[in-house]
Design a protein around this nucleic acid. Sequence first.
DNA 1: CTGAAAGCGCTTACAG
DNA 2: CTGAAAGCGCTTACAG
Lengths: 348, 348
Amino acid sequence: MEKHITIKDVARKAKVGIATVSRVLNNSQRVDPETRKTIQAVIRQLGYRPNASGRRLVKKATEMVCFLLSNREFMNPFHSGVLHGVERYLSQAGHDVVFTNLHYAQDTAAEALALPRIVNHRGIADGFILSGTNYPNLVAAMDALRVPYVLFGNNLVGGRGRRTDAVYYDDASSSRQLVERLIAMGHRHIWYLGDLSMPWFRRRAETYRQAMKAHGLTPSEYTEPYDRDDRDYGTSYGTQAVNRILAQGRPVTAIVAGNDGIAYGTWRALRRAGLHVPDDLSLVGFDDVHEARLTDPELTTVHVPTEELGQACARMLLEKLKHHGAPQKPVVIGTSLVERGSWGPPKL
Amino acid sequence: MEKHITIKDVARKAKVGIATVSRVLNNSQRVDPETRKTIQAVIRQLGYRPNASGRRLVKKATEMVCFLLSNREFMNPFHSGVLHGVERYLSQAGHDVVFTNLHYAQDTAAEALALPRIVNHRGIADGFILSGTNYPNLVAAMDALRVPYVLFGNNLVGGRGRRTDAVYYDDASSSRQLVERLIAMGHRHIWYLGDLSMPWFRRRAETYRQAMKAHGLTPSEYTEPYDRDDRDYGTSYGTQAVNRILAQGRPVTAIVAGNDGIAYGTWRALRRAGLHVPDDLSLVGFDDVHEARLTDPELTTVHVPTEELGQACARMLLEKLKHHGAPQKPVVIGTSLVERGSWGPPKL
DNA sequence: CTGAAAGCGCTTACAG
DNA sequence: CTGAAAGCGCTTACAG
């Protein structure tokens, strides 16, 4: 590749000063229409790409935001929805979004974290949206570097209560509704399936327990650790859980799966065992992603408005950036129960 | 947020020149161990983040590569695998990967394309890997700007033959094998399901036709246009196709689905119709993604080594970058037939 | 081993 | 409307 073309080359060829070229590049101030046209032609002809570094050194903002997905092997449908919402909101606001994967151990000291250039260096992205599964050490590292960020609060491990600069969805009320509806239908043997080490599963389990106890019922839980490398979003976990429960011959008329992937695996294992949903067993999931529509009948689940979550994160980040990093009040997004065909009264 | 901390602040506080700070930042040359320690302490204490723009203005490389996914609503499992391979290879080579979504119309003139800053500006990413569904106008625009890129060739619409700077997977031989194995099993009424406007579906359809004709059989195809906004990766397309075929009462003993999503939808529709795979009908997919393992029995399909594809793209791009943008010879990655339970001899 | 200085490619008052 | 010049925050010969 030849020498790179700079603003000087454009200026020389257009017989103007570099300041004028810069002005047409930025549509700033008035430039003689004729001159503008000439310059634009030269830019096109030369295939000139302005060097972002030069510009960013002067203007402090890059108008680029980074969506930082942590500790996820693959983009899953849930975070994919959040990212989509972020992109929608930000592009409409004139910002570009860039997505980066990050893997780190929760027990690495904050100072020892190997962070990518985009967070370690100023001037690449203006701010960050932390998604995926996050731990306090990353948050501490970001704080120490004073990197502006907003996080998706439900996935922060070890956080208690609601913190600033975070967007949450309310999983408690819908989870509770799910269980209470099952109880109201007459179910007594309701199982919960989901690993307790992940905060979202833990909260759902707690809500389940409370609802059960409130009605004088005994909780039954399958909470073996979830395989962190599990690329199938819980499917095999659900299958394994059901097989275990059925093998033990424990009574069960309804299953509350920690997420839709687990529910899918559950449904498949039941079907193989010759059990029909919802005639023999009721089954509900959580998240309302792709998998919820793959079962037959489709899954009753809790719809989490991922796009809205993304939009809220983006809005909050822009607000934070506008106010020089001032802490933003937490935002909570509601969820809703989506009633489909996978539940019904228990078999007598 | 206060004034930003620069290298000067660090130098002042550490009582050294900025050149020395720069040296410890870059581990370059020898620096007195004591001085180094002091400077590192100050850097940490101040929470100093070097400004990437300053550095990039001097050093031409950013060591950041952009994975540009075009015209896809959501990250699908296929491209997610490719991205994963790209990340693996590049991180091991000391580069960071950043992912960007791009949506554009195929009929927009190359010059009129609204490109994100990351491609329009020099100095953000060193090079690009084009994935998703791509059209000639984007390629032309990248060429005009002399942006270094490598593309995932199978998804380039309208490209004929193999071009330089592209990585391909060989779908023809495995597709043919699939059909020929079905024929060898005794199948005569084999259907192909898949939209012809997408190049990968088209190539699979052609291979299918050739194989059928080579054995004196008449091809039967369902090729209604695929809904481009289809977020379910073909599931509903497959369901609809099968329902249509069954409603018409056309003879069918085996179905070759354009991808695993379509195969999943096909399987579901068959199951609902009371037909069992593979006893009543054989079913095969393509891609070997998540969906291939969700059916019961699991799908016989063609494994496309997405990770390898990603790695090959990354390797090629680095090579291209090293040689100042010199065109790289195309690379073709093999695919393999994955025999699982979804096929067998036709019912008599 | 270390510092002063030039220079990377831009933008933006400032002066005209 | 336009250009010369300063300056953004770095890195890297160069000289010591």
